[in-house]
């Protein structure tokens, strides 16, 4: 789905050759500051490389309309974004932003349950805890039924048990629909449990090894 060749971004990333496969779970693994989130943003075209090739479905990513691309390759940021309004508003806002069709309350309730969230749809989203916000944000992108999900530390605020259950659901659901997933984590366990391919930033990012 993505092919990266001799790519440079500021003094953060220098990647010689990386391929991310369609329908697979690829994990970017590495410590903080190793450029994982920056790489995700490049794939979502939230930033653009200074040099090098970045292909999406075998075409330079710059040839796609950035907004339409982001609707296919949805990204979940590390700090969950909670917008003004209720839990329902926050779950639906991804569909609204990407101009996709809305879904019924039933579907929302089902996904809340899968995310182990005991909250009502009319509850104020701002009052939720960090872990709850994280799951709302994850459920939000899942509802968007995109081709690919770029998820940045989606479960960092969750306890181990909840983390496992939520991720199990997310991965299972996505794999069943052959979605591509690129996930950032610094947990080796998560990386090993779900990945088809693990990219260790230490190995793929030349910049990093130079600066240390």
């Amino acid at each position: 789905m993505f092919i990266i060749k001799s790519l440079n971004y500021k003094d953060i990333l220098q990647i010689r050759n990386v391929e991310i496969h369609t329908g697979k779970v690829t994990t970017l693994f590495g410590e903080s500051g190793s450029g994982k989130s920056t790489l995700l943003k490049l794939l979502n075209r939230l930033i653009s490389p200074d040099q090098g090739t970045l292909l999406y479905e075998n075409k330079p990513i710059g040839e796609f309309d950035p907004v339409l691309l982001r609707r296919e390759v949805v990204m979940l940021s590390q700090a969950p974004a909670i917008f003004e309004g209720s839990v329902r508003d926050n779950l639906l806002i991804g569909l609204k932003f990407s101009e996709k069709e809305s879904v019924t309350d039933n579907k929302l309730l089902k996904i809340l349950k899968e995310m182990k969230l005991k909250k009502g749809l009319d509850d104020e989203a701002d009052k939720l805890s960090g872990g709850e916000k994280q799951r709302i944000a994850l459920a939000r992108v899942l509802l968007m039924e995109a081709k690919a999900y770029l998820i940045d530390e989606p479960t960092s605020a969750l306890d181990e048990d909840t983390e496992k259950r939520v991720m199990d659901y997310f991965i299972e659901h996505s794999k069943a629909k052959s979605k591509t997933i690129v996930m950032v984590t610094h947990s080796r366990e998560i990386a090993q449990r779900y990945s088809d391919q693990i990219l260790d930033m230490k190995n793929i990012n030349q910049k990093r090894s130079l600066s240390v």
Binding site: L46, V74, A81, E84, G94, F97
Partner: peptide, 20 residues
């Protein structure tokens, strides 16, 4: 900034992302 950027990540146009 974070909310605007998050809206962009989800496929919002700049117009929609900055509406508020």
């Amino acid at each position: 900034k974070h909310l605007v950027e998050s809206a962009l990540m989800l496929g919002a146009t700049p117009n929609v992302a900055s509406k508020k």
